[in-house]
Amino acid sequence: MATAAHRMDAPAALPDDLLLAVRDLKIAIGTDEGRIVPVNGVDLTLGHGRTLGLVGESGSGKSLSTKALMQLLPNTAQILDGSHLLFRTKQGSVVDLAGFAPRGKQIRAIRGGEIAMIFQEPMASFSPVYTIGNQMIEAIRLHRGFDKKAARALAIDMLGKVGLSNPRLRVDQYPHELSGGMRQRAMIAIALATNPSLLIADEPTTALDVTTQAQILALIRSLQDELGMSVLFITHDMGVIAQVADEVAVMYMGEVVEYGPTRDVVRHPQHPYTRGLLAAIPSIDQIGGRLTPIGGDLPSTRPSGCPFHTRCDQAISGRCDTVQPESTALGPSWWARCHLLGQAAS
């Protein structure tokens, strides 16, 4: 049985073609009812200039995992020992972000400067009382050391680059003076003005209407070609992933259940959960046909064995509900965690 080819024994080693490797990330949160572990052993890799799509239901831990990269977790959350967030800085050194203090200088240099983030709600991402330019120039001056004038010039330049008409006017406007799509463009401009090597996009199109969604996706793609940054794209929408991602990681209950090239995963999904997600996408070809939802609800606590066995129609009783599946390699960079695959291979 081929297992764990993607796991590295030496945690500090990051192959040259990778910008980021998340290894065995575990996050615990203290709640009133006790401690829960919503992220329980996440493994991801992201290459230079590539786009990784992180897909999963609400509560699957995808947002938490990416917040951990920037040490933006809530105060009650904690990254557990043994988690590694290896990241290659612009200077070329490899750092483990998991070891950085959430308020320290080191992570502040990474935030905005090396890893930038855009959020689901563009309106709420801006402070309503400062102009777009003000919030943009602040980041540019902080990370690039520009003076006010140069920072403003760059801000105007970036606003033009993300396709806002009349950037000279926009730079002095307040967020409420822009439309939703324009705000998300402005947010992208802020994020990319500091020339980060990684852009984390946390459901950036979910709050937008469909035509605007397509424009924003195209914009991120073209800026990626131009600026060469890597993108970590979080969404619950498999359809969006198919459009933007080179690789896809499917998350379920705090674990990555399948990881691989988007083409392969979308065409030949191997994990039953991935198949379920794909079957639930509405498609023009199937008008009249009914969508197939995944049965059942997300359990409130993590079941033993394979976390998906409570909703899986192929679950093998006595195995799936007791033994946690190891990952099975399906290709050079394609793997899934499912007992069915292990059986087929052996």
């Binding site: 502040r108 930038a116 959020f119 902080l142 802020i190």
Partner: peptide, 12 residues
């Protein structure tokens, strides 16, 4: 507010 998180994510 998200705007505070966003500002934090800018490295302030």
């Amino acid at each position: 507010k998200l705007s505070v998180t966003a500002a934090r994510a800018r490295g302030l």
